[in-house]
């Protein structure tokens, strides 16, 4: 029991050190490091896609191919559930 507590405390300490480093190295709020793509999309989305909703313009227009993959994932999820839960008739 003692060993488990010591091991747990050790793992917790290591994780806490990594979290501390990531908190110290985090970007300041509202100031991303690489913002060229964000600025382009924010500036051009209303002219190029004619949409008020920038998120939808990214999901279905700029990254439409990614959404095609998402739809495929949904299809394969349905197929997997049908395979697992189907009832075998004897």
């Amino acid at each position: 029991m003692e060993k488990r507590i010591i091991a747990g405390a050790l793992v917790l300490g290591i994780v806490a050190v990594f979290f501390l480093f990531s908190v110290l190295l985090i970007h300041p709020f509202g100031d991303p490091g690489q913002a060229q793509m964000d600025d382009y999309i924010i500036t051009h989305t209303q002219n190029e896609t004619g949409t008020q909703n920038g998120v939808t313009s990214v999901v279905f227009d700029y990254r439409g191919f990614d959404t095609l993959g998402e739809a495929t994932i949904l299809f394969s999820a349905v197929t997997g559930v049908l395979l697992i839960f189907r009832r075998v008739r004897h």
Binding site: T49, G50, T51, F60, L74, F75, V78, V81, L82, F85
Partner: peptide, 27 residues
């Protein structure tokens, strides 16, 4: 507004309704 985005939303909506409802019904 939006060009093809509303049509794509509609197509994906139909797909998600049918797909998720099949999952729920099969379970």
């Amino acid at each position: 507004t939006g060009g093809v985005l509303p049509l794509m939303n509609f197509a994906v909506g139909v797909k998600v309704i049918a797909g998720l409802f099949v999952i729920v019904l099969v379970m």
